[in-house]
């Protein structure tokens, strides 16, 4: 039987590779924030209170372009919509927890923590403290993110052209690492191929809305493949 502490530490430990992936990302965010005209305090406050890497990136870009605050908030909403899919996925596992647990877990629900924690929740054991695993993962992500954003802000104007080094490659590479464990049967392969194709076809959509459309098409394709597979199996058995 796992204790709270064991779950917490395991969550933090299994998030370690993703901390590495977030580090260049945090550095560039800090560097970009400095050049965007955002104050250091605001850039740090954004990391501390919003805690959403890709939305922060886009926000900093919009600040540099002198976009109105309302547009920045709306863009954040759309870019982060995918997180609602994550909370839907976690719902069956978290619904018995009190709100005092659901609030911090929701605040820390990043792509990375979701990808790590969902594997733990799906594992078939009777641990009652799997939410501590998620908590360990999100706290590790949170502290790591604050640290690298801070260093990015401090070093940002001293490193010439930090954003031109291609450090942004860390994000897709990390996501590929997170993706692979989910691809383990034919319906998920169909899901990935469909979502990937649609993501390229919907690039013209504003505010990265294509991500949401592509995700829904992929989910639908996976579901249909699974149902068709079941039907064929039944027919073979009959």
């Amino acid at each position: 039987m796992s204790t709270r502490k064991q779950e917490f530490l395991a969550g933090a430990r299994n998030t370690f590779p993703l901390l590495l992936g977030a580090f260049p990302f945090g550095l560039i965010y800090g560097a970009l924030a400095v050049t965007s005209g955002l104050s250091v305090g605001a850039a740090m406050a954004m990391s501390a209170f919003v805690f959403a890497g890709s939305a922060q990136f886009i926000a900093v870009g919009l600040v540099a372009a002198h976009a109105p605050v309302l547009i920045i908030i709306l863009t954040t909403l759309i870019v982060n919509l995918r997180h609602m899919l994550y909370s839907a996925t976690l719902l069956p596992y978290l619904k018995k927890l009190p709100q005092t647990w659901r609030i911090p877990l929701a605040f820390g629900l990043t792509d990375e923590t979701f990808a790590v924690a969902i594997h733990r929740f799906r594992k078939n054991d009777s641990s009652r403290f799997k939410h501590w695993y998620q908590f360990g993962s999100s706290l590790a992500m949170y502290l790591n993110w604050q640290l690298w954003c801070f260093l990015g802000l401090v070093l940002g104007d001293r490193i010439p052209d930090a954003s031109g080094w291609g450090l942004d490659v860390a994000m897709p590479i990390t996501f590929i690492g997170m993706l692979i464990p989910f691809v383990k049967n034919i319906p998920t392969v169909v899901c990935v191929l469909t979502a990937g194709a649609v993501s390229l076809l919907t690039l013209g959509m504003p505010y990265k809305l294509g991500i949401i459309v592509a995700a829904f098409m992929g989910i639908l394709a996976g579901f249909i493949t699974e149902q068709t597979g079941k039907k064929i199996q039944v027919e073979i058995q009959v």
């Binding site: 890709s54 995918r82 899919l85 994550y86 839907a88 996925t89 069956p92 792509d111 979701f114 990808a115 969902i118 942004d168 994000m171 897709p172 996501f175 590929i176 997170m178 993706l179 989910f182 691809v183 319906p187 998920t188 899901c191 990935v192 469909t194 979502a195 990937g196 649609v198 993501s199 390229l200 690039l203 294509g210 991500i211 592509a214 995700a215 829904f216 098409m217 992929g218 989910i219 639908l220 996976g222 579901f223 699974e226």
Partner: peptide
């Protein structure tokens, strides 16, 4: 409920592929 399992791979690839 059955479709929830396709959320992570679908979202991850939709972010990654255009980025690369």
């Amino acid at each position: 409920e059955v479709s929830l399992q396709y959320i992570p791979p679908a979202v991850l690839i939709a972010i990654t592929l255009p980025a690369v």
